[in-house]
């Protein structure tokens, strides 16, 4: 009888205790922000990401769970800078959740917290796929994560003041580990400085800025539009005269054009995770840059 009692009690506490632990419902647009939230808030949040590392964050397939998560969310964390412009406004409007509307406390855009690169000098449609607010792929430089972490820590404390101390502690712990990790990556990547790369399209400006890589050509100057014959023959000629050190593409992108150029020129191709979950085994922010640096160094010794 006693054992049954304790069992019932145990089950009861399990049922009541577990959900009560998660205080905040957090929805992120991209997995890197879910990973960062996990670092900064641990068990204090229930976090999920609208897209996975294998998906293009520009597009999202609407599932019922996404709407239901957006409705329950206390905090929405996205990259911003028009990256999610194709679906996020619809999601906000459709769920009508006041906590995650533009300007609300629960609306957090990571790109507001970093200094943006690639802001066009002249806004002109003829330039193609223009991002007026700058290049949105900020997660390719860990120093940007540092900036976002500072702001996100403050935001978590603002929304959930009862746990402010815990957030602060977790932030300080993360910040220390992160600084140390960046130091390590910088050391390993020293030999990459000045190397030249060909990219799929402009997804890597922040990484190039961080590591001192030089982008010498793009395979697909306009995303979604196949490159012209002219562009490809120009590219080929350029690469035969002065080959780049590597061709880089993100795991979620098609590798066809990268491999085509590699076959024509003999330049090495590097597939990079681009975000958390982009490649199997890359499950945290630390592993993301570990793997990125490892692959780059291996290809360009």
């Amino acid at each position: 009888m006693k054992t049954i009692y304790t069992r019932v009690l145990l089950v009861l506490t399990l049922f009541t205790a577990t959900p009560a632990l998660a205080v905040l419902n957090v929805l992120t647009c991209e997995p890197e922000w879910a990973a960062l939230t996990q670092e900064l808030a641990g068990d204090l949040v229930d976090v999920s990401s609208a897209t996975s590392g294998a998906q293009d964050p520009h597009h999202v397939q609407a599932r019922p769970s996404l709407l239901s998560k957006a409705r329950k969310a206390d905090l929405l964390i996205c990259t911003g800078a028009e990256l999610e412009v194709g679906w996020l406004p619809l999601l906000q409007h459709k769920t009508g959740n006041p906590k995650i509307q533009d300007g609300a406390e629960g609306y957090f855009m990571a790109s507001d917290e970093v200094s943006m690169l690639g802001i066009p000098v002249v806004l002109d449609r003829s330039q193609g796929d223009v991002h007026a607010m700058g290049n949105p792929h900020i997660q390719t430089d860990p120093n940007n994560i540092t900036d976002v972490a500072i702001a996100l820590n403050a935001r978590l404390q603002l929304i959930d003041p009862d746990n402010a101390e815990v957030y602060q502690q977790r932030y300080e712990d993360f910040s220390q580990r992160w600084k140390k990790a960046i130091k390590g990556w910088n050391q390993q990547a020293e030999k990459l400085r000045g190397k030249t790369i060909v990219v799929h399209h402009e997804s890597w400006v922040y990484m190039n800025d961080w590591l001192g890589l030089k982008e010498v050509a793009t395979l697909e100057p306009k995303p979604g539009i196949p490159p012209t014959a002219d562009h490809l023959s120009d590219l080929l000629q350029k690469m035969k005269q002065k080959p780049a050190d590597a061709i880089i593409y993100a795991a979620y992108q098609s590798s066809r054009s990268a491999h085509w150029l590699a076959e024509e020129t003999g330049i090495k191709v590097v597939e990079l995770p681009f975000t958390v979950g982009g490649i199997k085994g890359v499950d945290s922010l630390f592993e993301l840059y570990d793997e990125t640096i490892k692959r780059l160094v291996e290809a360009m010794q």
Partner: peptide, 25 residues
């Protein structure tokens, strides 16, 4: 459409919107 879009990617967004409505939205 592809030929016209070669010089105008903004139309592409509208084309996508026109062709890929999503019932849950």
């Amino acid at each position: 459409g592809i030929l016209l879009l070669a010089n105008n990617p903004h139309g592409g967004e509208h084309l996508r919107e026109l062709l890929t409505g999503q019932i849950l939205w």
